[in-house]
Design a protein around this nucleic acid. Structure first.
Length: 930
RNA sequence: AGGCGCGUAGCUCAGUUGGUUAGAGCGCUACCUUGACACGGUAGAGGUCAGGAGUUCGAGUCUCCUCGUGCCUACCA
């Protein structure tokens, strides 16, 4: 779309405003405008000035936008827009993650479609192919993000494999290596036979399933007795190197140190004693397979046992498995069980539930595998001194440098961090950050370096080959909070924007990403001096000051959205139907902490209606502006500030609505400060619809008398208040609904806005508006009077169009208030005449409240039975209230212990209820009997 | 095996440090096509706060138990 499209957009005049709100007609236009005008680009602010920094959790470059992203980005955008409008330098940095396994899989699938395999084309060509894929499709998710109106700084968009980020990855790897915190070794790791790579503990998802526990007899080598072992994975017996029993287990005492014949093989294995074997489980005897089980590996180490690897990388039995070689692991299991059974060695098969680990990515059952991998030592003291990575990460949260909302996640984090194991950071993939280590052809030395070394650091030989493994994707994303700002250089950006203020994310990546960022941020940034040269403490080393963790978005039936279930709600689809603003508002209003969000279309519909309401209220305002122009009244929008500070002689509704605006601004301020997006949304919704539209707009119509020259001043003042309040309300709403507010705001300024966008204006602040509690109280009384009269009119079945007089009795001044505001009552409650009564009112056409009695003068035979029912119901309610109050007030303990305010409040209410009770009773008694 | 949530109106959810007669949206009922808006207006109906026990002057809110339900962590042969 050409830039001129939005620049030369037609003026939005009232007569041109469509009657209904059509989001599709406006949203895309503003989304493009914001990006093209680079409105959200910021540079490093002056030291000490307020700023707000957020890092977008980078979606996988292969990803498509889902509801979780949309919730996350809506929340981040509300925060960013809010802070920006409070005058802070608000920076939100977007980017994507190269997502090692996911992306490699995607391109491999593409290749498969062409009948090719990556192995055929070679590493270099394959990696180039992935880059090509990325260039073509990699921006999709960020384009979708633009549609959401995310106010990010697009000039700072990053990709985790960008050159400067890759260099930072190498730098950090080398530093960790030099500090002795990265090592290489042969250990049992989680191996995915399908992806053919090691994966970290976190990438293994456990699923409970009904399996079998097999009991197998191993005969003693000397023919004297046998031991029955229990196992869930009989195929691994081909790699057994021992049988372990508990040293205290009397049953097996006579076998200690003896040899057993390993069935199906010609090997003999020893019986060892180890505390890990629990006598209560199974048979109390456990076979030891160090190459295929992490526990067995540990036993093997303790007892100096060999490891026999019986499987290849795709989990097929290898040559060590003798006749079973070539069989896939589960085929091997079947065959081995058959053979054992045939030999009479399969003693028992029992039902057993256990959880099996599956690859997070492809759901293949993980095979523990002995292999040489790179690890990050998280509990080790670095050579430079100081604390271990985990210790600092624990301290960062314990000492409050990083705060969690909701707070319960702090505990979850702490538990995990305190039980953390070394992190396997190498992956046998081609797509990713290749580990900066070089192997020497002449000696076993490994040279770790920032740039390709010329010679081996051990023997000086020049025949070097780079390590083929790449790093876990989360290694690079864990560095982002500082690497995006130019680390390891001390850049002005790093000085200005680090630590970021808040991280908004889902709990699903709490350990994957949040914990890793805290670990790596605390570790590396501690070594980076503060901008003024002083030493940095943990407080300023952490990657963010706060973590806000939001819920999962589920479908309307609270089911987790998944492709297989087919219940995935596509945000783009929903946006197409309801508009981005409505969906954003829905997500925000449902985002209460601690509970998952069951996404509701009905609520989205309701919020689209809200947007429609806003739209039509704008049409009303514009119409008044037009009428004013015709009457020779023009309002300069730059001079409206005084209208938000009305004097005491201003009309009551003006004072009231400004007070309510101020109060709402304060409420929103507090709610957003606590990440209560739901409350904040409810406040603006209630104010805009329930107060501004339902009451103020209706009342202000009375003051706009464009045809009456004598009332010109009054009319102009009312118009100014109307526009001022409406404009402020738009600003208040704009972080939640950026599109519709931008559209209306720009139209309101008719081509001459004071800023390029409503997003660059100031957020309404309570302190800048006049809050008049007396006016609010008076207005509330009037509202109550109006509502009561409306109710009475319905009961009396006064025709809608027919005006009727009312009598008002009040000892609290409500009668005078009613007289003074007769036009308001006439308009809003069809009152023809307000008459002040000097006695209390009762009867079928009267109703009493705590503040006044009011009667509608209208002759009509009422439905006595219905009236009796209603009055009886009210009476019962009052009776109950009175009984409760009496009980409490008669209780001396209550009087002695409850705060005076509570006691006084109760007494006051008791008096009011008594009054209502008496009046209702009288009305009931006055009803004609049937 | 440990840990964390949730259970409030027909539905989806709020309910702050315990304080008087528990709220919202949608849905429902009745009336109203009034010159911003029927994606609207007005007035209503609807809840023994899962169940039980306890602490307290007072419990939707705190404690314990039971039932239902969702999730996380773990080297459960």
């Amino acid at each position: 779309m050409p830039a001129a499209f939005y620049v030369r957009r037609k003026k939005l005049m009232p007569q041109e405003l469509s009657k209904s709100y059509d989001p599709t007609a406006i949203e895309e236009r503003w989304a493009q405008y914001w990006v093209a005008e680079e409105l959200f680009h910021v540079t490093a602010p002056e030291p000490g000035s307020a700023r707000f920094t957020q890092l977008l959790p980078p979606p996988n470059v292969t990803g498509r936008l889902h509801m979780g992203h949309m919730l996350n980005q809506t929340e981040m955008d509300i925060l960013t827009r809010w802070h920006r409008m409070r005058g802070e330098t608000a920076l939100w940095v977007p980017g994507t993650d190269h997502a090692g396994i996911a992306t490699q899989m995607m391109v491999e699938r593409q290749l498969a479609g062409e009948g090719k395999k990556r192995q055929d084309m070679g590493r270099e060509a394959f990696v180039e192919r992935v880059w090509e894929w990325k260039r073509h499709y990699g921006g999709a998710i960020l384009d979708q993000m633009k549609r959401l109106g995310a106010s990010v700084d697009w000039s700072r968009e990053y990709f985790t494999m960008d050159e400067h980020l890759s260099a930072a990855v190498r730098e950090s790897f080398v530093r960790l290596y030099e500090q002795g915190l990265i090592y290489r070794g042969v250990y049992i790791v989680n191996w995915c036979p399908r992806c053919q790579t090691a994966i970290s503990d976190l990438e293994v998802v456990h699923e409970e399933q009904q399996g079998k526990l097999y009991e197998i007899r191993y005969d003693a080598a000397d023919g004297n007795g046998s031991i029955v072992v229990a196992t869930t994975r009989p195929e691994t017996m081909l790699g057994d190197v021992a049988v372990a029993v508990n040293p205290k287990d009397e049953r097996y005492a006579k076998f200690h140190g003896r040899m057993l014949k390993l069935p199906l093989t010609d090997r003999e294995i020893p019986v060892v004693t180890d505390d890990w074997a629990t006598p209560e489980f199974g048979t109390g005897a456990v076979k030891v397979t160090p190459a295929h089980d992490p526990n067995d590996f540990a036993i093997g180490q303790r007892h100096n046992l060999p490891s026999i690897n019986i499987m290849d990388e795709s989990a097929h039995i290898n040559e060590a498995g003798g006749v079973y070689a070539g069989l896939e692991r589960f085929q091997a299991r079947t065959k081995i069980l058959e053979d054992l059974d045939a030999l009479g060695l399969l003693v028992a098969v029992k039902e057993h539930t256990n959880s099996v680990g599956k690859c997070d990515r492809c759901k293949t059952i993980v095979e523990p595998r002995l292999s040489k991998q790179w690890f990050m030592a998280v509990n080790k003291t670095p050579k430079r001194g100081g604390n271990s990575i985990a210790a600092d990460a624990i301290r960062a949260v314990e000492e409050g440098h990083v705060r969690f909302t909701p707070e319960q996640y702090r505990k979850t984090y702490d538990e995990w961090m305190k039980n953390i194991h070394d992190w396997c950071i190498s992956r046998q993939l081609w797509w990713g950050h290749r580990i900066p280590a070089w192997h020497c052809a002449k000696c076993p030395e490994v040279t770790v370096a920032r740039e390709t070394p010329a010679a081996c650091s051990g023997c000086g030989a020049t025949a070097l080959t780079q390590e083929t493994d790449v790093l876990d994707t989360w290694f690079s994303s864990g560095l982002l909070p500082f690497t995006v700002f130019g680390w390891p250089k001390q850049t002005t950006d790093l000085a200005a924007f680090y630590p970021t203020d808040v991280l908004v994310t889902g709990f699903d990546i709490l350990f994957f990403w949040v914990a890793r960022m805290i670990m790596l941020g605390s570790h590396f940034m501690l070594d980076m001096p503060m901008p003024d040269g002083s030493a940095r403490t943990l407080k300023d080393a952490v990657p963010f000051r706060e973590v806000y963790i939001h819920a999962l978005v589920r479908d309307a039936d609270r089911q987790k959205m998944s492709k297989t279930k087919g219940n995935v709600i596509d945000p783009i689809d929903i946006i197409g139907r309801f508009g981005t603003d409505a969906v954003r508002f829905t997500l925000a209003s449902m985002a209460s902490p601690g509970t998952d969000i069951a996404f509701s279309e009905a609520r989205t519909e309701g919020n689209r209606a809200f947007a429609n309401k806003i739209w039509n209220s704008a049409r009303f305002v514009f119409m008044q502006v037009e009428r004013a122009k015709e009457a020779g009244i023009t309002v300069d929008l730059s001079t409206l500030a005084p209208a938000l500070n009305p004097t005491a002689d201003a009309p009551i509704e003006a004072q009231w609505i400004v007070s309510r605006l101020a109060a709402t601004a304060a409420d929103v301020h507090r709610a957003l400060g606590e990440y209560r997006f739901d409350e904040a949304a409810a406040f603006v919704y209630q104010f805009f619809w329930g107060e501004l539209c339902d009451w103020y707009l209706e009342i202000v119509k009375l003051r706009l008398n464009f045809d009456d020259a004598a009332k010109k001043d009054e009319t102009e003042a009312a118009l100014r208040t109307l526009i001022a309040v409406f404009e402020a309300a738009l600003r208040m709403l704009s972080p939640f609904m950026p599109f519709i507010t931008e559209e209306i705001w720009q139209a309101l300024y008719d081509g001459k806005p004071p800023a390029k966008s409503i997003a660059l204006t100031a957020y309404p602040q309570a302190a800048q508006m006049k809050n008049n509690p007396e006016a609010v109280a008076a207005m509330e009384t009037l509202q109550q009077l109006i509502v009561t009269v409306r109710g009475l009119r319905k009961e009396l079945a006064v025709p809608e169009k027919e005006a009727a007089p009312i009598d008002v009795y009040s000892v609290l001044g409500a009668d005078a208030l009613a007289s003074e505001n007769e036009v308001m009552l006439a308009r809003l409650a069809r009152v023809s005449d307000v008459r002040i009564a000097d006695v209390a009112l009762s009867g079928t056409n009267a109703r009493s409240t705590a503040g006044f009695d009011v009667a509608v003068i209208y002759e009509r035979q009422i439905d006595v039975a219905a009236e009796r029912e209603r009055l009886s119901k009210d009476l019962a309610k009052y009776e109950k209230g009175l009984a409760g109050a009496k009980r409490q007030l008669g209780n001396e303990a209550f009087l002695a212990k409850a705060p005076q305010a509570v006691v006084d409040g109760l007494k006051k209410q008791q008096a009011e209820t008594k009054l209502l009770y008496d009046k209702t009773k009288a009305a009931l008694d006055a009803l004609p009997s049937e």
